[in-house]
Amino acid sequence: MKIIHEIYDIKEQIKKWKKEGLSIGFVPTMGFLHEGHASLIKTASKENDKVIVSVFVNPLQFGPTEDYSDYPRDIDHDSKICRENGASLIFNPSPKTMYGDKNYTHVNVDTLTNKLCGFSRPGHFQGVCTVITKFFNILSPDKAYFGEKDAQQLAVIKRMVKDLNFDIEIIGCPIIREKDGLAKSSRNTYLDNKGRQAALVLNKSLKSAHNLLESGEKDLSKVKKLIKNNIEKEPLATIDYIEIVDSLTLQPVYKIEDPILVAIAVYINNKVRLIDNFTFKIKQVK
């Protein structure tokens, strides 16, 4: 398995694969891979002849006070995960390779980015959409794989692909969790022992909300209140947002008609920001 750093080199490799009629799957990551990424790579390797994993900590999607400099990086570890799960190569460009000395062009998706993480992290999705557009243009994949933990990102990318007529199929893959329910995240490594235990409040709160919806509760304000009360019982947790939105448009909903997304973002120890979510739809009575 090769690691390629330059755009010209990876384009040449892709030309060879395309001439051979091989299908290409793409898994975009910021590295420091875990079992969640491994599941994406494994799924992509089952569905495509070749799989490219990008390892690129994208500066455009970090705010000035966020953890770009501290974000964990370990290309040797990432290579091992990629190799074990069927990746064909890693694309590991530098920021200068991707953006030159100055990037003047950006890609925006309106409306879907106004709430949730888009509200909490201004400019974040402009950075995400810009880098993913560049990757799509450079790599020309047939399919691209994204985790459902980043539900807003998945919805935004699907819309961008539709609006910009990319001939790429976007595949959402299930959230991978630790045995105790914590969603896998590269930022989990920031947590100390107490913080790691406190972080379990995210999944526990969402489970309680899911159970309430399953029991037939249709008042979504009560669902939000339940989540809020549960999180506030944990002294190390600070709520960034609790939102219930339409799973496609990401706009607020107040009653359940179409499938909904229940999404939360919580700071642990006032510094480690974690997200989690679930989707819910009313079961149709036959």
Rank of each mutant, 00 (worst) to 15 (best):
I4E: 06
K11G: 12
E12Y: 11
K15A: 13
K16V: 15
G21E: 08
I24A: 07
M30R: 08
M30G: 13
E35C: 10
E35R: 13
I41R: 03
V51F: 05
V55M: 06
V57T: 11
G63H: 11
T65K: 15
E66M: 06
E66N: 11
I75C: 07
R83H: 04
S88C: 10
S88T: 15
P93F: 06
K96G: 00
N108T: 14
V109L: 04
V109G: 08
L116C: 10
G118C: 03
P122D: 05
V131K: 08
P141A: 08
K143D: 08
E148M: 13
Q152K: 06
I157W: 00
R159T: 09
V161Y: 10
L164V: 06
I168E: 05
I175V: 15
D180T: 07
R187D: 04
N188Q: 07
Q197F: 04
A199R: 06
A199F: 08
A199W: 03
L202I: 15
K204T: 13
S205P: 05
D219V: 11
L220T: 09
K224D: 13
N229Y: 12
L236K: 12
D240M: 01
D240Y: 04
D240R: 04
Y241W: 08
E243W: 00
E243T: 04
V245N: 03
S247V: 07
L248Q: 13
E257C: 08
D258Q: 15
P259E: 14
A265R: 00
N270M: 04
R273E: 01
L274R: 09
D276N: 10
K281R: 13
